[in-house]
Structure formats: structure tokens, C-alpha cells
Design a protein around this nucleic acid. Structure first.
Length: 376
RNA sequence: GGGGAGAUACCAAAGUGGCCAACUGGGGCAGACUGUAAAUCUGCUGGCUGAUGCCUUCGUAGGUUCGAAUCCUGCUCUCCCCA
């Protein structure tokens, strides 16, 4: 993997660059649609590529391992071929499931013991096995197994959790070095910063993970309940420690405003379920604010879904029609909302890159932020 | 014509003397959702009120009772069976 910073913003720490992978180039800043189980929910691969022009998507190790199972993915020739997606894929390690499935897992120094949320069967994930699985999936970017520390956690607990993440990183990185890609394309390994909401832990973690040569570096364990301001402080604390010539990935973030603020702090990559999940639940994001499509006020609004939108659905369908679909729980409603939200997120990233390259990001960002969080 | 069953809030449907402004489901209204156990979850849904509370409601008109959606009587309407 290569990363080239093309341009730095003047008034903020934002930068725009290009990541080169075995499955093509990715312009940054980039938003990566989340496709947990080998599908970005409600969106065809064809739409992802031709309508949205998504440059990279996510998959999830835990989910794919449980179903369909790694042997099937291996037989298919990797996830790219299995799902017919020829652009880059990043797989999350299952670190987030350590957090979100806390009630059905047990952590040991060895790894994480999970009860499957599907059938209750027990499975052990270790830093090494998680690398093996991601090798078999064929992800272009492989994430280290980490413990996404719960919030709130006191300093002592957060430190203990961080130590475990670091121990796991040492083993995972070592195993990555000892193993080879299975399908002929390059794979890169990203370590993850943890440290909860404690600046000293975050800084120490950033220094620690930088001691491992890697294609890029991620920041995890944020947007798990802490106030947004705290999240920005934690991001700000580590971006200058992480190498400037490697992409920085803020995991699981976030709202459109979160994205712009984080870009300003020097983040290059994002992923989040918000555009798809909230879309399925009727929430639409646009450059003029947020709409809850289930609200009664849209029932007879036959104007275009989003006159300023960049996706075909934005002009093809009305607000009243989408409201009807969402209220009726029609599948097409989820599809339209997901397409719209993803296209908006991708537009926001593209536009950010453009403003950075024009040296006007800071001012534009502040103007956008006041509009983006409005409820309309 | 004879016999039987029933009428509860927007809809369906519990309740059959006080714990009932009334279970539950649907519908409606609003909210939540951040590396997806999520096409999910939560709240409200007679009126007024910040809350306590007050007022009006279980087809309709009376009655019994300290107290009635619940018991009794008349009336209206609906459904089923027999002729």
C-alpha cells in the first residue's frame, strides 16, 4: 500500500491524498460504507460502484466467520469474488464485537471467547486467528484485534484494557509478518489506538502502535457514548503522533459534523453505519440538514427528495413517496434512503477533498457544520 | 314468527361490583440509532395540566349500590340458528 499526501489545508490539519491498493486507488478523505456480512445492507454492488462510486467498503471478520464461514469464503476465492466487488475491502477484526457483544463474550490474555449471537456456539478469537481469517477473506486492509474499551471506564480499567490491546497487537503484527496473502493481491495491516478518554493513555498508545511499521493507523474506541468534544480532544491528541505519511483511520465515526471536524484534525478515513442504519430507520442527511422521513409533515410534500443531491434517487422520488415507503416498511424505502445517505456522505468527503486542495477547507467546513446538524 | 349471542377508546379485542381513563395488538404521533445481534428499539396515544390532580367516557334511557364498563329494566342496533 502506498499513501501520498497531495495537499495540506492551510488553516486546519486537514489533508487530501491518495491511497493505492491492490484493488485500485482511494482518494482521501474517504468514507467507507459498512458491509458487515458481505453486503452493504439494501445496496447492490452495482449501485455501490456505478451510482455511488464507493471506492472501498467494509466487511466484518466476526460476522463472516460465523456465516457463511471462512471455508466457504476461501472456496469462493475470497470475499471480493464471493460478493463480486473488485474494489478495495477493509475488514474489521471483531474488536467492535468485543464491545457490542460484551454480554456474550469473555476476554482472556489468549484472546476473546464468543458465544455466537446466531446459535450460541462458542468460538475463540485470538490476535493470530483473526489475522488468518482476514487473510482468507482477502481484505486489502486487515485490522488488528483490539479491545474497544467501554465508556465510561476509569483510568485504571482503561489502562488495563489498553495493555491487552497492545499485547494483542504485538502478536497480531508478528503473525501478519509471518503469513502471506492467499489470492495474489497485497494486504496491509492497521494497528489501532485505544486509551478511552484519557489523553495520556491515547498518547502512549499512539507511540506504541507507531513502533510497528504498517500501511496505516487507526483510532478506535471513540463515539461509544462520550461527548463529541471529548472525542475530538482524543483525536487531536494522537494525530500528530501518528506518522504524517500514513493514512489515519477514525473507526466507526460518525455524523456528517463528526466527519468534518475530524478531517480538520487530520483524519483520512472513516466508516460508520449511520448512513445505512439510520437511513433504513427513516433518517435522511443532506447539505441542508437532517430529515426524519417518518414525520407527518412530509406526507404531502411531492417535491424532490433532495434537489441538491447527487444520486439519481434524489430527483427521481419525492419526499411524500419515500415517507410512504418507510412508513409502510417497504423494502424500496430502505434502498432509496441508503442510496441517498451514502451518496451524501461520499459527496461530503469528495467536496472536503476538493476544498482542501483549493486551500479553503476551514471556512467551508464551518459554514457546512452550522447547516448539517439542523433538523428540517 | 321462535330461540340465542352481542354492542368497550381510531380499528380489533380483554375486562364482568372498588386495584379501570380501562390489558393487549394494530394504526397514529414523536424520539433514539456512530469499527451493524438493528428493514431495529423506546415513549406517548379521551380532555385540561409541569407534576399532583380535576373533568368527561365502555350502544342508549332509567334503576340497584357507599361505589357500575361490570348487576337489573326499557329502548335502539348488529350477528347466528330454527321456521
Amino acid at each position: 500500500m502506498k499513501f501520498e499526501v497531495v495537499k495540506r489545508d492551510i488553516s486546519t490539519s486537514a489533508r487530501s491524498g491518495i491511497i493505492s491498493t491492490g484493488h485500485g486507488a482511494i482518494e482521501t478523505p474517504v468514507f467507507m460504507p459498512v458491509g458487515t456480512a458481505g453486503t452493504v445492507k439494501a445496496v447492490h454492488q452495482r449501485e455501490l460502484r456505478d451510482d455511488l462510486n464507493a471506492k472501498i467498503i467494509l466487511g466484518n471478520t466476526y460476522h463472516l466467520y460465523l456465516r457463511p464461514g471462512i471455508e466457504i469464503i476461501r472456496q469462493a476465492g475470497g470475499l471480493h469474488r464471493f460478493m463480486n466487488w473488485d474494489r478495495p475491502i477493509l475488514t474489521d477484526s471483531g474488536g467492535y464485537q468485543v464491545f457490542s457483544l460484551a454480554n456474550i463474550r469473555k476476554l482472556t490474555e489468549e484472546g476473546a471467547m464468543f458465544s455466537s449471537h446466531i446459535d450460541g456456539s462458542k468460538h475463540m478469537f485470538t490476535p493470530e486467528s483473526i489475522v488468518e481469517i482476514q487473510r482468507a477473506i482477502g481484505a486489502d486492509i486487515i485490522m488488528a484485534l483490539d479491545e474497544c474499551t467501554t465508556w465510561p471506564s476509569d483510568h485504571k480499567t482503561a489502562k488495563k484494557s489498553l495493555d491487552l490491546t497492545h499485547q494483542w497487537l504485538a502478536r497480531g503484527a508478528g503473525h501478519f509478518e509471518r503469513t502471506e496473502p492467499l489470492y495474489g493481491h497485497e494486504q496491509d495491516f492497521f494497528p489501532i489506538v485505544q486509551g478511552s478518554v484519557y489523553k495520556d493513555l491515547r498518547e502512549a498508545s499512539a507511540h506504541e502502535i507507531c513502533s510497528y511499521p504498517a500501511g496505516g493507523y487507526a483510532i478506535g474506541g471513540l463515539s461509544v457514548g462520550e461527548p463529541a468534544e471529548v472525542m475530538y480532544e482524543m483525536v487531536d491528541a494522537v494525530t500528530n503522533i501518528l506518522p504524517a505519511d500514513k493514512p489515519r483511520y477514525l473507526m466507526g465515526v460518525g455524523t456528517p459534523v463528526n466527519l468534518l471536524e475530524s478531517i480538520a484534525l487530520g483524519i483520512d478515513m472513516f466508516d460508520c453505519v449511520i448512513p445505512t442504519r439510520n437511513g433504513r430507520n427513516g433518517m435522511l442527511f443532506s447539505r441542508n440538514g437532517i430529515m426524519n422521513m417518518r414525520n407527518n409533515k412530509w406526507k404531502d410534500d411531492f417535491t424532490a427528495l433532495d434537489p441538491d443531491g447527487t444520486c439519481f434517487v434524489d430527483r427521481q422520488y419525492s419526499k411524500a413517496y419515500l415517507r410512504h415507503l418507510i412508513i409502510s416498511k417497504e423494502i424500496l424505502g430502505a434502498q432509496i434512503a441508503s442510496l441517498h445517505n451514502l451518496s451524501f456522505y461520499l459527496w461530503l468527503m469528495e467536496e472536503s477533498g476538493k476544498k482542501i486542495r483549493e486551500g479553503r477547507f476551514g471556512k467551508w467546513k464551518n459554514e457546512m457544520i452550522s447547516r448539517l446538524s439542523q433538523r428540517i
